[in-house]
Amino acid sequence: MKIELNGKVHELPEHVKTTAQLLAFLELQNRIVIVEINQDIVLKDKYESHQLNTGDKVELIHFVGGG
């Protein structure tokens, strides 16, 4: 399916259907990452159950240096 990932359209492989699978696919499962889908935050305990849909606007956020 096609989703918008951090502002760019991205084609996901067939097997990526949940938030947890998306993070695993991007090799981010062990990183400090915050997930927002269609402007709603998806908390860690919902990664497994949260299904992705075509056209979802997914933001993967993290902390960077700042003052």
Partner: peptide, 11 residues
């Protein structure tokens, strides 16, 4: 310690 919140450079 302060930090900023930003998009990941996933690509």
């Amino acid at each position: 310690l302060t930090f900023a919140v930003r998009r990941m450079n996933i690509f």
